[in-house]
Amino acid sequence: MLEIKNVSFSVSENDGDKEILRDVSLTVPARKLLVITGPNGGGKSTLAKLIAGIERPTAGSIFFDGEDITDLNITERARAGIAFAFQHPVRFKGIRVLDLLRLATGKNASVAEACEMLSQVGLCAKEYINREVNDSLSGGELKRIEIATVIARGAKLSVFDEPEAGIDLWSFQNLIKVFRKMRNEIRDSSIIIISHQERILRIADEIVVLKDGRVDRRGTPDELFPNLCDAASVSAPCRMAEED
């Protein structure tokens, strides 16, 4: 489904180039859920942006369904079937939750359909459907709306960047259910979730640990879990897991 081949990404800074991703190669087969984890600053969000076309790799290429999409822009990739839930969702003055869901589904979804999409992420639909996606929403509400818009697209490849961030415990339980359900009904699609949460890592078909811009380790949850918590590699998932 998705193939990332020798992708590097660097940005120029005052004191020369800064390498954010170095020679990353990854494959996400159809019908699989891949979870990417690793310390903050490791390059996870950057990789997600490269997949969505928001950033372009400085080297390497990206294939989707066998087609080289490295030179496709954001819109073209979206239309090809890639959906992306931002780590930090965007606010819009004057655009309502309903409008955003309609834009996401590309059709004039009825209020009932939109409500269904929202209740999946634990939002009482009636209260939210006509709210503007602006500063009046809390971070957690915004995050859940962002997740709902991506689920609503029913894309071939859905990428979620830290969906758990800013979400309270009750909603988090719900979220796990949503991802489990997505995993179970995956059919011909694939899912990538960037996460620090043990419970999300546990439902992965494969886990990739991204660290200092490189693939540090990869494997199934059973293969990786015994060692995932040693301080040398990633501490974040374990710390978060203990908290909940």
Binding site: I54, I74, A78
Partner: peptide
Amino acid sequence: AQLIKLMTLGLTE
């Protein structure tokens, strides 16, 4: 970021 978000939903710029 607003433009990018809507483009990831399939809209042109």
